[in-house]
Design a binder for these strands. Structure first.
Length: 576
DNA sequence: GCCGTTTTCGGCCCGACTGTTTTCAGTCG
């Protein structure tokens, strides 16, 4: 997969062109950025596109014309791009690292190179400590301070944060803004509203007649670390948790447009704006304006889409993956919702690596309105989790029976396990033990490094055993921690469909596995999904909202989710 | 450099904020 490398090169070409002495149109710069965006968000490897259709296929990608297609071809053939090499020779600086500092763009970076010979972060640190930057024309004490601050910030926080960490903080801020009485309306926008698995910063929109007071209230919140930018309509702060948070005060008549605009994604907005332009309208964060300059979008987000002849769509779909076309045809699917789920098929207790007893888990499940949960503790091979053997499971299930009796059907606890799929594809418990269970979740917890062929064979063997109901976290990735193992997901999906094994959408915030793009990859196969919390303590049972967000980002409807079935139907389904 | 229900030429998103500027350039989203 060369997509990211090529996209990075194009972005760097754009930055270098923008500062080159040879006057370059800023639109040429933008053209490279646009091509980079297209390639980095491409669903399939760019080498496949080229292999299938050559230059012509490349030129069909949005923003890729004759010249850029030529560069891609050149790279795929020689692993070099002459234009890029020439620019790098002229400007031998680590542009990507330098411009990743907040407040430093290509222009400043190149000035620092020309005047002080700064090529990379190390050079920059030296220049900062000797206070050489403040003496430069166009720079000053404040600029030097800002660069220092940006550098510290970059080194302390590591970019994007898990949705599961960011969203609760964002919602807390919104709650406080509402309670303050200073904001008539307050909501989370941006990638958090779209339920992206990671969030780069938090966007909050408010309607308020008291701009200054609401900004002051915001910057004084205990979760705020430093104030980065502060104006009458926009304030940016750095939160103690490590993320930046923007608060924008919006006029009531612009609220719908602002919500649409700041929810994004950027690519989605570009597509929507194009539709507006083609109709002779103008769309920005203040409204949808007709030729006479009248705001025809109304004050609600729905009104913007409606006035453009489009159906409103859930924020989770707004990633420029074809949702705009569907909205024009009014064919937006009715995506699965949190309240559609009737239970949770992957949970742990104290018996292995959980923190709570089965009864505590059951009580919390009831509080959440579940009709059932499966208790699925680890099996013996997973030593570190104190995995249970066959005898221990038999004993444990007596305890489950007792609790089920006590619960009198208010909640049904299904007997299960999260059984290890061993290196050779065999399962970690006896067949007879597994056959006795209501719901068996199969999972890979070892030998992640098998090659793609071996790993695929291993998982398919497990699915073909006929003993598994759910394949847990099917790719094994952990966000920012562990890469997915190599596996042929299409083959796994096909086998799963044939064996009536559901693919899990694991809702644990650092897993979200399958993720949105993988869901889309496999949903063409006739496979069903299970949205589970993988809870290790009672509080984790609420993680289902992130799994739902992920399922919605993968465009799934209720009928594809096995734990959206009521208990009776589920039990019928689980009995193969 | 890309692109076309206005098109093969002439557009290409644009507003907010900051610092150092004495009227605007750079950065961000």
């Amino acid at each position: 997969m060369e997509n990211k490398i090529i996209a990075d090169i194009f972005n760097e070409i754009a930055e270098l062109l923008s500062v080159d002495e040879r006057p370059t149109s800023k639109f040429e710069v933008r053209a490279y950025q646009k091509a980079a965006l297209t390639i980095s968000t491409l669903q399939e490897p760019i080498e496949d596109v080229y292999a299938k259709g050559g230059l012509k296929a490349l030129m069909e990608l949005p923003g890729v014309g004759k010249s850029i297609a030529g560069h891609i071809e050149e790279y795929l053939k020689t692993h070099r791009i002459e234009k890029y090499d020439e620019l790098k020779k002229k400007y031998p600086i680590d542009m990507a690292a330098l411009t990743s500092i907040q407040g430093m763009g290509a222009k400043k970076a190149i000035t620092l190179y020309r005047r002080l010979g700064i090529r990379n972060i190390d050079d920059l640190k030296k220049a900062l400590s000797s206070h050489r930057i403040r003496k430069l024309e166009g720079f000053g004490e404040k600029s030097e301070e800002m660069i220092q601050k940006g550098l510290t910030l970059m080194e302390s926080s590591g970019g994007r944060m898990l949705l599961g960490d960011a969203l609760p903080v964002a919602e807390e801020i919104v709650r406080k803004l509402k309670e303050s009485g200073l904001a008539k309306e307050a909501m989370v926008a941006g990638s958090a509203r779209r339920m992206r698995e990671t969030v780069g910063d938090i966007d909050i929109l408010v309607i308020s007649g008291k701009q200054k007071e609401v900004m002051d209230f915001f910057t004084a919140l205990p979760s705020v670390d430093t104030v980065l930018v502060s104006g009458p309509t926009k304030t940016s702060v750095h939160l103690k948790m490590g993320l930046n948070c923007d608060l924008r005060v919006i006029e009531p008549e612009s609220f719908g447009a602002a919500v649409q605009y700041f929810t994004g994604s950027r690519d989605h907005n570009i597509q929507v704006r194009t539709i507006a332009v083609n109709k002779g309208y103008k769309l920005n964060e203040y409204g949808l304006f007709d030729k006479k300059g009248v705001n025809i979008g109304g004050i609600k987000e729905e009104g913007i889409y409606e006035a453009l002849g489009m159906q409103w769509m859930p924020p989770e779909m707004r990633e420029a993956r074809g949702e705009v076309k569907l909205a024009i045809k009014h064919k937006i699917p009715d995506l699965v919702k949190l309240k559609d789920l009737n239970g949770d098929l992957h949970t742990h207790t104290k018996e292995t690596d959980g923190a709570n007893t089965l009864e505590e888990m059951a009580n919390e499940a009831m509080r959440l309105g579940h009709e059932y949960i499966a208790t699925t503790n680890h099996t013996k091979s997973l030593y570190i989790a104190r995995g249970m053997n066959d005898d221990q499971f038999v004993k444990y299930f007596k305890q489950v029976d007792k609790l089920n009796e006590k619960l009198k059907g208010k909640l049904t606890i299904l007997k299960g396990a999260e059984v290890d799929i061993l290196k050779d594809g065999s399962l970690d418990l006896r067949d007879s033990t597994l056959e006795y269970m209501d719901c068996v979740v199969g999972a890979i917890h070892s030998s992640f490094k098998l090659d793609k062929k071996e790993m695929t064979k291993r998982i398919i063997a497990a699915l073909d055993s006929g003993l598994i109901h759910v394949l847990a976290h099917p790719t094994g990735r952990e966000i920012n921690e562990r890469q997915a193992y190599e596996v042929d997901l299409e083959a796994v999906a096909e086998t799963a469909a044939r064996n009536k094994v559901a693919l899990e959408i694991n809702s644990f915030p650092n897993r979200l596995d399958l993720n949105d793009t993988n869901i889309m990859r496999v949903s063409g196969y006739n496979v069903l999904f299970s949205i589970d919390s993988d809870a290790h303590r009672t509080a984790n049972l609420s993680f289902l909202r992130y799994g739902i967000g992920t399922a919605r980002r993968g465009w799934l409807t209720k009928d594809r989710i096995i734990n959206a079935k009521p208990l009776k139907e589920l039990l019928k389904y689980l009995k193969k």
